[in-house]
Design a protein around this nucleic acid. Structure first.
Length: 412
DNA sequence: CAGACGAGATTAGCACCAAG
DNA sequence: CTTGGTGCTAATCTCGTCTG
């Protein structure tokens, strides 16, 4: 009846045993993130789930009759700066695929840095506003719950937190739920109630119809209002914060003038970029890497660029630049300075690497038996699931990627 | 020569912490 | 205080070498 896909067994039990799922027969299966990460097993994941996993893999997906009912993402990370957005791509993937998502994140966590007393690192409230945008767009719940913590009892006294050894977080005391949040905490009880709500709705109606109407549910609607309230109480003046503070908006003309170096008599840049008057550039002056940037890039899309449900429906281009942008108004162009000299080679090497791991150039006789279904998946999808996560997410979200020594862009 | 074993490489997860 | 670049670890795969 219900099927639950999980990456951690104790967290799966934590969810099942504290919700109405415990009254149903459950089949549980381990989830595999990607073909690149788990070449032997990923191809056995059902096709409809692969589509959700295309962008990023959540901690839990619950299905009924082969239709995803909801997903959960759980983290103990301190949500300062862009970190709150690290898992955002998977929330977005869930919403884009019409699957409600629950996000568990600490309101604050105790961090001890050298030469200073322990302090609470507090969640970047922008995550609430961005999740609200996601809900407006897809009409599917994307709800954040606070990971249980001592924060409110010890706002100014992290030193005296009872749970200081766990960095202020309240973990479960139940040995079956090792590393899970405290199931007796009020915030977790809210989570269980809302999950129960979703399960009851799917029992009464079809899964699809239930999901369609979830935002009208009183409990869920209340929680959504609470999230907005959290945003405005933590940021009353609605001041922009990371990662939006690392973006710059320019007239697209400037971008086209910059990309002009790659045009000649044979090739002219296509219509897509030109069709949008302005362009948002996310500046990352770091060595090429994945987390936390894929999630941050995705969040900027929903925040600053999207007007509709797909990445094609944007009123501004979204560009990822590996370096810092200087705007040259006199020449109507941009200058890209990369202090780490991050090369386009680092991107292309990752693409090359995933191709070399694919089976598509083999003869049938060379395939081991267990490789045959994987080969067949690759025959259909190419290296779609084989590439590393950052290559998948960057090339999905960014209309163009700029490096100091090269660039990639979409024409349509 | 098939299977076992283990080192090294790769992927991704899960965060931390120093700078300004 | 906020920002935003970087570090560490587990899991798994790959591939060369060993062994019976």
């Amino acid at each position: 009846m219900y099927r639950i896909w999980y990456s951690s067994e104790s967290f799966k039990d934590f969810i099942v045993e504290n919700t109405l799922l415990k009254n149903h027969s459950i089949e549980s299966k381990k989830i595999y993130e990607s073909d690149g990460n788990n070449a032997k097993k990923f191809h056995s994941i059902p096709d409809h789930l692969k589509k959700i996993l295309y962008l990023d893999c959540p901690d839990i997906i619950v299905e009924k009759d082969f239709e995803p009912v909801f997903s959960i993402e759980d983290t103990k990370e301190a949500g300062t700066g862009h970190n709150a957005f690290q898992r955002f791509a998977r929330l977005a993937a869930s919403a884009e695929n019409n699957v409600p998502c629950m996000y568990i994140y600490p309101e604050a966590k105790i961090i001890s840095r050298k030469d200073s007393n322990p302090t609470w690192d507090k969640i970047n409230p922008l995550i609430f506003k961005t999740l609200n945008k996601l809900m407006n767009l897809y009409r599917i719940p994307s709800l954040l719950f606070y990971y249980p913590s001592d924060f409110r009892e010890h706002v100014n006294t992290p030193e005296s937190s009872i749970h200081k050894k766990d960095k202020g977080l309240k973990l479960s005391k139940n040995l079956n739920y090792l590393g899970c949040p405290d199931e007796n905490d009020s915030e977790m009880k809210k989570l269980f109630k809302i999950i129960d709500c979703i399960i009851l709705e799917t029992e009464n109606k079809s899964v699809l119809k239930a999901k369609d109407e979830l935002l009208n549910n009183r409990l869920i609607n209340n929680h959504r209002n609470w999230m907005l309230h959290e945003y405005y109480s933590k940021n009353p003046s609605d001041t922009p914060s990371s990662p939006l503070t690392n973006t710059v908006e320019i007239p697209t003309k400037y971008l086209l003038n910059y990309l002009n170096q790659y045009e000649n008599q044979e090739y002219q840049i296509g219509e897509l970029l030109k069709s949008r008057e302005n362009t948002v550039i996310y500046q990352v002056d770091a060595k090429f890497r994945g987390d936390p940037y894929p999630g941050a890039l995705a969040s900027i899309d929903y925040h600053s660029c999207r007007t509709g449900k797909t990445f094609e429906e944007r009123d501004k281009n979204l560009v990822l630049a590996w370096g810092v942008i200087d705007i040259d108004h006199s020449n109507q162009t941009i200058i890209l300075n990369s202090s780490k000299r991050t090369s386009i080679k680092s991107f292309m090497d990752k693409v090359k690497n995933s191709d070399s791991r694919s089976l598509t150039s083999k003869e049938f006789g060379q395939l081991k038996n267990y490789e045959i279904p994987r080969y067949y998946m690759q025959a259909r999808y190419g290296t779609m699931f084989t590439k590393s996560k950052e290559v998948r997410i960057y090339s999905y979200f960014a209309d163009a990627i700029l490096f100091c020594d090269g660039a990639l862009w979409r024409d349509g």
